[in-house]
């Protein structure tokens, strides 16, 4: 009897832990300890926490930065802006933080962990439909049709908040079948054809390389998402943090971002 109880006592937390471990799979874990600058002598490191939607553009900018600063490595931690903000407030060491929404940036600046942020890019929503557009969606109003399976991001994440704003601006009531935890998950379901239409960022449609089709709609202008970037007050890389920050805001940075579908602020 005691044995059985103890078996359960072990089984439960283990199984629950396994279950929640699924959350991690979108976002690589912070390698906090190794993310520090590697000492006085030679190689330096810049650690950048950036929203998942910046994965492509920032990786490219990272390579540019490394080429311009020989001996320097840029390490990225891409993830949901809210998760990153939380990791930062829990003391994760980083040099630069680029968020997908001013609200998440605010939690970091409120904790006096980041210097004044600057908006470096803006992202607009598009309607994403699977190849072939089976539900024949042309405009935002079509999403209100109950026969159309719609996915939105959850209200808690920036793309969800933007979707709510855009639909509100259009005066539409849409009942989605699912509220996804991030924009990539939303996009995956469109790619697989499980969903007839979803509201995602223009950049995501471009990044999907033709697997989904994007449809622009006028109400998107009412729900533009600002991307703020800031150096952190305790940046271990010091000046390098500022230099990366500057690169993102430079003309070169803007070119990379607009090519990916972002709009200049």
């Amino acid at each position: 009897m005691f044995r059985r109880l103890s078996r359960w006592a072990v089984a439960l937390p283990v199984a629950l832990a396994l279950g929640l471990s699924g959350c991690g799979s979108g976002e690589p874990a912070t390698s906090a300890a190794s993310a520090r600058s590697a000492g006085a002598g030679g190689a330096k490191e810049v650690t950048v926490f950036a929203a998942a939607s910046l994965t492509g553009t920032f990786t490219e900018l990272g390579k540019t930065f490394e080429a311009a600063h020989p001996g320097t490595t840029v390490r990225f931690n891409f993830g949901s802006s809210a998760t990153l903000a939380q990791q930062l407030t829990q003391g994760a060491p980083a040099d630069v933080f680029a968020a997908a929404s001013p609200a998440t940036m605010k939690t970091v600046t409120d904790a006096s962990l980041a210097n004044a942020p600057t908006t470096f890019a803006r992202n607009k929503l598009q309607i994403a439909v699977p190849a072939g557009n089976p539900a024949k969606v042309d405009e935002l109003q079509d999403l209100a049709d109950p026969k159309v399976k719609v996915a939105l991001c959850a209200d808690q994440v920036p793309c969800g908040a933007a979707a709510v704003k855009a639909l509100g601006a259009a005066g539409l009531k849409v009942t989605p079948v699912t509220l996804e935890q991030d924009v990539k998950a939303t996009l995956t379901k469109v790619e697989l054809g499980e969903i007839d239409a979803a509201l995602v960022y223009e950049t995501d449609v471009i990044a999907s390389a033709g697997k989904v089709r994007g449809i622009a709609f006028p109400e998107a202008d009412k729900a533009i998402n600002d991307y703020p970037i800031a150096t952190l007050t305790k940046a271990p890389a010091g000046d390098l943090a500022k230099q990366f920050f500057d690169l993102v805001l430079s003309q070169q940075g803007e070119d990379v971002l607009t090519k990916a579908g972002f709009e200049a602020p």
């Binding site: 629950l16 396994l18 279950g19 959350c23 989605p176 509220l179």
Partner: peptide, 29 residues
């Protein structure tokens, strides 16, 4: 006893399930 232990593990694992659920079944209140 083995079946019960297995069912308990199974139940606990199902209760904590996240990744497959949100991917396959989505997320709607």
């Amino acid at each position: 006893p083995g079946v019960v232990a297995g069912a308990v593990l199974c139940w606990a694992r199902a209760l904590g399930e996240f990744g497959a659920t949100i991917t396959f079944a989505g997320n709607f209140p």
